[in-house]
């Protein structure tokens, strides 16, 4: 009997199929659409592949050299450095175990670049199960703003090894705060590019060390920092003081 009960998804899919027909027919709509797009099927100009490659290379060189390296190199901890380079409306945040800033004036040798497909999967489980799954300690904040409670724990696997744990907290208003910790025992370098017209990046003090606070236009906030062999991201739409308090309450 229970199986005969319609599920929410079935209701929604049923509702999705119920549409009032459009005022115009399918063909009439097609005519309107093609009147608004350029005709490209005749005398289409094809750019030779080699020319495209050359243009792409020049673009990469221009972009690479144009990134102005500001004085924003900051040591995050003993191992991980963070650099913020800005150019126009773009900002690039780089985390790396290298001591020097990443060079942007020399292109890598493309022949030496290899790409590897990495098998990733994730599993939701209890905090205790997650701890059993990982070779590193999982830490949770001891402070959370009013009514936030742990909603889920997700372990992310890379090549079958548990490398990242995500703790998701939800409050009575269904706001979400997420804490991600990623185990990083080896040298690494990672970058993200943000639009700095819509995003503000600040350096903040976190428990005596430094962290980056990224404020997105939609009110979303990320705090990014590192500890030995571990990278952290705390994010949500809580106010930033509260998020900093949460981050500082993690007792490593």
């Amino acid at each position: 009997m229970m199986n005969e009960e319609p599920s929410l998804q079935e209701w929604l899919k049923e509702d999705y199929q119920k549409v009032e027909e459009p005022p115009h027919s399918k063909d009439e709509n097609w005519e309107t659409i093609i009147s608004e797009i350029p005709r490209t099927d005749q005398h289409q100009k094809k750019i030779p592949k080699k020319s495209l490659l050359a243009v792409a290379m020049i673009a990469v060189i221009v972009i690479g050299t144009a990134f102005v390296q500001t004085n924003q190199m900051q040591a995050f901890d003993w191992f991980v450095n963070m650099f913020v380079t800005t150019e126009g409306d773009k900002a690039q945040i780089t985390q790396t175990t290298n001591e020097k800033e990443p060079s942007t004036d020399a292109l890598p040798d493309f022949d030496n670049i290899t790409t590897n497909a990495v098998q990733e999967e994730n599993k939701e489980m209890t905090f205790e199960e997650a701890q059993d799954e990982t070779d590193f300690n999982i830490y949770a904040p001891s402070y959370l703003p009013d009514s936030y409670q742990l909603e889920s724990v997700t372990v992310f696997y890379e090549e079958a090894l548990a490398r990242e744990v995500q703790l998701e907290y939800v409050n009575n208003l269904n706001d979400v705060v997420m804490l991600n910790q990623t185990y990083q025992p080896d040298d690494f370098s990672a970058s993200k590019v943000v639009d700095n017209e819509d995003t503000e990046i600040k350096t903040i003090v976190l428990d005596g060390g430094e962290a980056r606070l990224v404020e997105f236009e939609d009110g979303h906030i990320q705090i990014i920092w590192s500890t030995p062999k571990m990278n952290w991201v705390l994010e949500g739409e809580e106010n930033k003081e509260q998020l900093i308090n949460v981050a500082e309450s993690i007792d490593y």
Partner: peptide, 8 residues
């Protein structure tokens, strides 16, 4: 958008 925005 962020994953947490989707969840929210």
């Amino acid at each position: 958008i962020n994953e947490s925005t989707v969840k929210t």
